[in-house]
Design a protein around this nucleic acid. Structure first.
Lengths: 177, 177
DNA sequence: ACAACTAGCATGAAAAATCATATATTAATC
DNA sequence: GATTAATATATGATTTTTCATGCTAGTTGT
């Protein structure tokens, strides 16, 4: 019989949550990003804005929808973010001549400078982070994540099964991009 | 060190972002969670609310601050979420007799029922997700994530015993996306 | 016991994200 | 070559989040 445990703080609860894959993913993402996101904030950017800059450095002239996908944000949000970034002269929006619905987003020199600096910092931070991971975990993490993404991103996964005895018929909004 | 592999992305953009660890983490978390989060939404819950329910099933009577940490949300947000959940009679808040600042959150029978159902669904979903991962990646992912979390989270179990109100003033308050 | 400090939670006002939908353009169909 | 559907972006209105701060209760030091 165990002694009565103290339930106040920092209880290492051996429950469901702490071993749940989706929680581990979200928590790991949060924890790993927290430090660098402070750098981003210090540069006067919000996280999606930083992602936009990084994406544009990879592919200048990307479309808003593309950027929304990469920045993990919704389209209407990205639209507003891009407008704000344009006001701050980090990017410029140009209509696509071939398809006038599209808006191509380009880095300004100012935006490119900031993006370049932050990407360099991100690479340093990433290298340090990976180095702190014990042994092979640092090396295994990226391939495992890519494998997970590859299994989920293309097309509609066949694993989308639900309805374990719950009442169906509720209108689930199928608004996946 | 770096094995320059072909990008799994069909996009011809072998840029920085698609191989950046923090992006892979965030994107993997998003993609992996998307399916189940629709189930959560269909149950009339937002994601942090689901996390609160799951956490309370692990540890009933948790404090608001504790729940905020687990649900990866800020304290003021969690306060409001708990208030809303109380109105919906999923939880009840009770003052802690020993420390009247604290608010202990307990599941109602209704909340426990919903939590139990969703956790069961989450387990099924998780098992299917892991099964779809090719070979060893499914098995390596969790340990790698735990290693990452262990390297980043402040509290280590070695000295975390009987730590009611220790001097560790710095809490996780930079939990932003 | 008293002051000063910290922890836990709540809250108002401002910023923001979200949802649904509008608008404009292109692609597809008959 | 109209008509219909689909794509790309923008926007209004509502709900959420956030930030700073307030307030109460416990803790520490003298």
């Amino acid at each position: 019989m165990q002694a009565p445990r103290d339930e106040t703080v920092s209880e290492a609860a051996p429950g469901f949550v702490s071993d749940y894959l989706l929680y581990l993913l979200a928590a790991a993402s949060e924890a790993a990003s927290a430090q660098f996101h402070q750098t981003v904030r210090a540069a006067g950017l919000r996280v999606p804005e930083w992602r936009v800059l990084a994406c544009l450095l990879d592919e200048d002239g990307a479309m808003v929808t593309q950027l929304a996908t990469v920045a993990l944000a919704e389209q209407s949000r990205l639209t507003r973010i891009i407008l704000q970034m344009e006001k701050r002269e980090l990017v410029v929006r140009r209509g696509d001549a071939a398809d006038k619905r599209r808006v191509r987003v380009h880095l300004t020199p100012q935006g490119r400078s900031l993006a370049t600096r932050l990407v360099a910092e991100a690479k340093v931070h990433e290298a340090e982070l990976i180095r702190t991971l014990s042994g092979g975990d640092g090396a295994r993490l990226k391939p495992a994540l890519r494998s997970l993404l590859a299994a989920l991103e293309p097309g509609t996964p066949e694993t989308a099964r639900r309805g374990t005895g719950q009442k169906t018929g509720s209108q689930v909004k199928e608004n996946m991009d």
